[in-house]
Nucleic acid binder design. Structure first.
Lengths: 341, 341
DNA sequence: TTGTAAGCGTTATCAC
DNA sequence: GTGATAACGCTTACAA
């Protein structure tokens, strides 16, 4: 193969210009005569020249690399969301560097590994364990965007789903459908998103509960996934408290519940129980579930996160922002849209 | 924040040694007195020093960055596989840089974007569009590992699932269960894996077919996903050819089929039809499907891919390798394990 | 508009 | 075992 990749110096010689002229030719902001630029491009093309990002990073003090810190990719929402983030990073002309911190043992080591690459920024998504993981980056002057996390950082930008409203939307939908015995299910291990969703759900209902208009209670399942929902179904359906509306803080849990319910009770009985999920993962749209859910607009959130990061790169010293993206109720067959006039 | 991150020169001053000694202290191969090394480490710790990878890359001519080129992350197998690859890359002390080339428009641009980062290697997974995408990297002296792709490259290492055997396993399982009217389903748009699986399936059956012992035919569905399976169910179940065994080249398609079947025919009738998927995605283990499938050992494949890459980095000029990883039949409820003696 | 030259922070090659 | 010193390939004043 090649002995050595072409450098700007090689291009300069071939084009008959100085090395710095080559460099300028690839910088759209530099004013350079169109003639020489074309000559440089031709030479570059001929040699297969590509800018060496390592050298560029050294001098510019930024790599255009964005760290995407995540965990628990077996969770379909997180996985789907990561893909959206990756796409957005690419669209912004940056490069994604994924770091999965599921393995708590090696977090520190991995973290420093990331810092060494002179990241332009880091996006930390929900599910990532340590609360203070962002601090480490900020300490090294790397901008941080937190997504759906509990921290009240005054140094990092924050993008959240409006989780409380999401929960309230589910509650409102049940009320509109005339449901009276409600349950909200979340995983035993608290996560920021789930806790806030459950809180929003119960808060919305609080006044109706004190009226004795309806009943509402919270149920915790073992794990925040399909199996958790599958297991909790027995508890919910066998108990004396007969729910007619169940809100799951994650779609995935709802799907497990629905599958278990099919075996535990008749289709007829199931029809009377409204089910709402949250997130709107791909699975929720499957015919097997066709789950009514509170959609988390992950495209929007990913876009917002990147826009936030780009703004910060432009204005490094501006005041950190905090935004909440609205959820949206999507009616499917597990809770029919009530007829309105 | 910090004005500037600490450099090895800063550490050198604080530790009272030369800059090169600092550098050596962080290289486990350099022989250095334990005393000075500890002194350097202490100083480094105090200053929060981290090696600057950009500078290191310049001199070492390698970045420890591995490009993961993929496409179609909405396909659950690809998505799950990418996560495994990411984990393996991290385990190897390297950093993953994901490139999603789903958007055909920008492939070339993106590709060059990757090359600029002086990647240590690139892993190209199935589903990636252009056949010659690996060539570009090889041209720049970047080692390439191809996974489950059709190319017969003599410059890149190749790791494949033994797709033909996978298909044969499904066929064998149907034969053992006494099934006689078989179908293999794959997506209309040919992909290397699917075509080979279907081929392996039909080849295994060929002799039995010419005996008139059994019948076997291939059916194409519109798309290689859940919806494709959902749609093709009508065609399969309504036709005069009554299958008692259907092999789907991807689990995802099988799941769509199963959901549609529940609405089209009785549970009783469905019991007579054996269904086998391929890949063993997370969904296949869901109670709703509990799909018998030919497992693609994605952990093993990811491990093999990385081991291959590491070997190549050690021995850049060795002859390219080609390995096939074996599949494994996993019995679940859509085709019961036949009783053997 | 273009060329010259000074870094950016490492590692590698020599001496000592 | 340790310290000078020369690269690595780029961007960016400063000069012309």
């Amino acid at each position: 193969m090649n002995k050595r990749n072409a450098t700007s110096a090689d291009v300069a010689i071939l084009a008959g210009v100085s090395q710095s002229t080559v460099s300028r030719s690839f910088d759209s902001n530099s004013r350079i005569s169109e003639a020489t630029r074309q000559r440089v491009f031709a030479a570059a093309e001929q040699l297969g020249y590509q800018i060496n990002k390592a050298a560029q990073t050294m001098i510019k003090q930024r790599s255009d690399l964005v760290g995407l810190v995540t965990a628990g990719l077996e969770d379909p929402f997180r996985s789907e969301f990561l893909h959206k983030l990756i796409a957005e990073v690419q669209n912004s002309g940056l490069r994604p560097m994924v770091m999965d911190v599921s393995n708590r043992q090696t977090i520190d080591e991995e973290l420093h590994g990331l810092i060494q690459y002179q990241l332009s920024g880091v996006i930390i998504t929900s599910g990532t364990p340590s609360e203070s993981i962002g601090k480490a980056f900020i300490k090294y002057g790397i901008p941080v965007v937190l997504i759906n996390r509990t921290e009240h950082s005054d140094e990092a930008d924050i993008v959240n789903l409006d989780n409380e409203s999401a929960g309230a939307m589910a509650a409102e939908a049940f009320m509109k459908s005339g449901k009276t015995n409600l349950i909200v299910v979340r995983a035993k291990t608290p996560s920021f998103s789930s806790v806030m969703r459950a809180k929003g759900f119960l808060n919305y209902l609080a006044s109706h509960v004190s009226n004795d208009e309806i009943q509402a209670k919270e149920v915790l399942c073992e794990s925040g996934n399909y199996d958790g929902g599958y297991q909790v179904a027995k508890e919910i359906l066998a108990s004396a408290y007969k729910p007619d509306g169940v809100f799951f803080c994650m779609d995935h849990i709802a799907c497990g519940f629905l599958d278990a319910a099919k075996q535990l009770i008749t289709t007829k009985d199931m029809e009377d129980i409204g089910v709402i999920g949250c997130d709107d993962i791909a699975l929720a749209r499957f015919k097997a579930y066709d789950l009514t859910t509170v959609r988390q607009p992950s495209d929007e959130i990913a876009k917002a996160a990147l826009q936030t990061l780009l703004n910060r790169l432009k204005h490094p010293t501006s005041v950190p922002t905090k935004q909440a993206i609205s959820a949206e109720l999507v009616y499917r067959s597990t809770l029919a849209k009530p007829i309105t006039n």
